[in-house]
Amino acid sequence: MELYRGKSKKTGSWIIGTVVCMGNRAFALVSPNLEPERPAYNGMAMGCGLEDKGLTEKAYLAMEYGWEEALERYEEDFPIWEELEPETVTRCCDRHDVPGNVLFEGDVYRNPDNLLFEICYGKYMAFCPADKAWMESVGFFAVSRDVEELYQVKEPMPLGTTEDYAYLVGNVFDNPELSQVHKEADPGAAKGAAQPVLMPAT
Rank of each mutant, 00 (worst) to 15 (best):
V19P: 12
D52M: 15
R91I: 08
M22N: 11
N175T: 15
L50Y: 10
M22P: 06
D164V: 03
A166I: 04
A185K: 01
Y65H: 09
L198M: 13
Y121Q: 03
E68V: 11
P176F: 07
A193Q: 01
G192V: 00
M135T: 13
E83I: 15
Y124I: 04
M22V: 13
L198D: 06
I16M: 03
K7T: 02
V30M: 10
P129V: 12
A133T: 06
S8A: 02
R95P: 11
P39W: 00
T161I: 05
P36A: 09
A142N: 04
E76R: 15
L103C: 04
G23R: 08
E155H: 08
A70T: 07
E68Q: 10
G160K: 01
N111P: 12
D113L: 08
Y41C: 06
L29V: 03
C92G: 12
R73K: 07
K7W: 02
V138S: 04
D146I: 01
L71W: 02
K123Q: 08
I16N: 02
S31N: 04
V20W: 15
T88E: 08
A40K: 11
A190H: 01
D94G: 03
H96A: 09
R145V: 00
A133R: 15
L29A: 03
N24E: 13
M22Q: 11
N33W: 15
P86I: 03
L61D: 13
T90H: 14
Y124G: 05
P158H: 04
A59M: 09
Y41H: 07
L198N: 10
S137M: 14
G100M: 12
E87A: 11
P129K: 01
A26S: 15
G160H: 06
A28N: 09
E148L: 02
E149S: 10
S179F: 03
P187Y: 00
Y65F: 08
W134V: 01
P36G: 05
N33E: 14
P32I: 14
K154N: 05
D107S: 07
D107C: 10
T162S: 06
F140K: 05
P158G: 14
Y60K: 02
E105W: 03
F27Q: 07
N114W: 09
V197C: 09
E76H: 12
A28E: 06
I80G: 04
M157D: 07
D164G: 05
R5S: 08
A28T: 12
E155V: 00
H96N: 10
V108N: 02
E105N: 05
L103V: 00
S137F: 11
R95K: 15
L198F: 04
W81F: 15
G17H: 12
G23A: 09
R73S: 09
G49H: 03
R25W: 11
G47P: 13
I16G: 00
M63S: 09
D146F: 00
E105T: 11
F127H: 02
S137H: 14
T161C: 13
G160W: 09
V169F: 00
Y121P: 07
A70N: 06
F173G: 02
K10H: 09
G49N: 11
N111C: 13
L115E: 07
N111E: 14
E184A: 09
T161P: 11
G23Q: 07
A126W: 06
A62Y: 14
C48W: 14
A45H: 10
E83C: 14
D146W: 00
S137C: 13
A62C: 07
A70Y: 07
P156N: 02
Y124H: 13
F117V: 08
E82Y: 01
G139Q: 04
L150A: 07
